[in-house]
């Protein structure tokens, strides 16, 4: 039992922290998130050069990390900095060919996971998209960074069971739009698109994605909590800092308590990723992240007061991203019931 990161991971984390602090500070992030593309290819290339994409994959996959703890470490930091680049999509390259994955790792090919459908947030057994004779037909909704994609990894039914398929972005029709939490997404229509069946089960990619989203939420929670604690210490009313009011102190402590529980849930999901218990702990993590995320986002805004209601204030955007993570790939209720069933 050891909870300290390995030296490699510590160095990776430090590198990432430094890069994000220097190059991805809030005004830059807002500029990228509000741009026409909704992401920055230049930033993406630099992140690839730093090895951040390669760290998401095992050596067998052509990377140099890929364990649950690596994924959690990276996504927690990406979350803290509200990074909008397509890292979730990069995870889907685990299902692609080695040649394609190599390109994803160096940043020249962008893969995007297209999964949720209208009325189907996560459960693969309920998918409506279908593959017949190598052609995929169906509609995926609210896919972040869809316009950035060179290749989609799409979940669909074939012969009554769900599977993953690779579809070229040129074979997809996009209805794009900006997203509430920054960046852009799209609904995607596939109409008899040429689809190559992939070996990785949908469930495996889902578990990795759920772990990554939960870790991203954790980073956002820490940022919201730190800002809130700092604000309570500096903002004065009635002649004293807000941090002197016990009602507010206890609410801040509740945030801390639940965030520590969320950190534990992410550790659990990372540890069990790829094992028989992986799905159960991934569901537990996503459930915990959704519940705590909603609490922390609401409390961060409430304890700040009016300032956190403004577009100018960074925590408002962190709270939005945190809340939206709760919505995607299955919400708290969905994952609670998955936890029961798994």
């Amino acid at each position: 039992m050891d909870f300290s990161p390995t030296d490699d991971r510590r160095m990776l984390g430090d590198t990432l922290d430094r890069f994000l602090a220097e190059r991805y500070y809030h005004p830059t992030r807002m500029k990228i998130a509000g741009s026409d593309a909704g992401w920055s290819r230049e930033m993406w290339t630099q992140m690839a050069e730093l090895g951040l994409i390669g760290a998401l994959f095992t050596e067998d996959q052509g990377g140099f990390g890929g364990a649950g703890a690596d994924i959690a470490l990276i996504f927690e930091r990406l979350g803290r900095a509200l990074v909008v680049e397509p890292f979730i999509g990069a995870l889907a390259a685990a299902a692609l060919t080695q040649d394609q994955r190599d390109e994803v790792i160096v940043g020249t090919l962008v893969s995007i996971f297209a999964h949720s459908e209208a009325g189907v947030s996560v459960d693969p057994a309920r998918l409506n998209a279908t593959v017949t004779d190598g052609k995929l037909t169906g509609t995926k909704v609210a896919v972040a960074n869809a316009e950035a994609a060179d290749i989609f990894v799409v979940s669909a039914m074939q012969d009554g069971t769900s599977a993953l398929f690779a579809v070229a972005a040129t074979d997809a029709q996009l209805t794009p739009y900006p997203l509430m939490d920054g960046g852009r997404g799209a609904d995607i229509r596939f109409d008899n698109a040429a689809a190559t069946r992939l070996d990785m089960p949908v469930a495996d990619l889902l578990d990795t994605t759920l772990l990554a989203l939960s870790a991203e939420a954790l980073g956002l929670m820490e940022r919201c909590k730190d800002a809130t604690v700092e604000y309570l210490k500096t903002r004065r009313q009635f002649g004293v800092p807000l941090s002197k009011f016990q009602a507010l102190q206890h609410r801040a402590v509740d945030m801390v308590t639940e965030i520590e529980q969320t950190r534990s849930s992410v550790i659990n999901a990372g540890h069990h990723l790829g094992t028989a218990k992986g799905a159960k702990y991934a569901a537990a993590a996503k459930y915990t992240a959704a519940v705590t995320g909603k609490l922390v986002a609401q409390e961060a805004i409430q304890l700040h007061g009016g300032i956190a209601m403004t577009w100018e204030y960074d925590i408002a955007h962190a709270a939005k991203r945190l809340t939206m993570i709760g919505q995607i790939m299955g919400d708290e209720d969905t994952h609670l019931m998955r936890f029961v069933a798994l």
Binding site: F3, Q261, R263, L336, F339
Partner: peptide, 16 residues
């Protein structure tokens, strides 16, 4: 399930 998840998380918090 809610309390079971909280307990699973708690076990790891305790270990930490």
């Amino acid at each position: 399930a809610r309390v079971e998840i909280a307990l699973e998380n708690m076990k790891t918090t305790n270990m930490r």
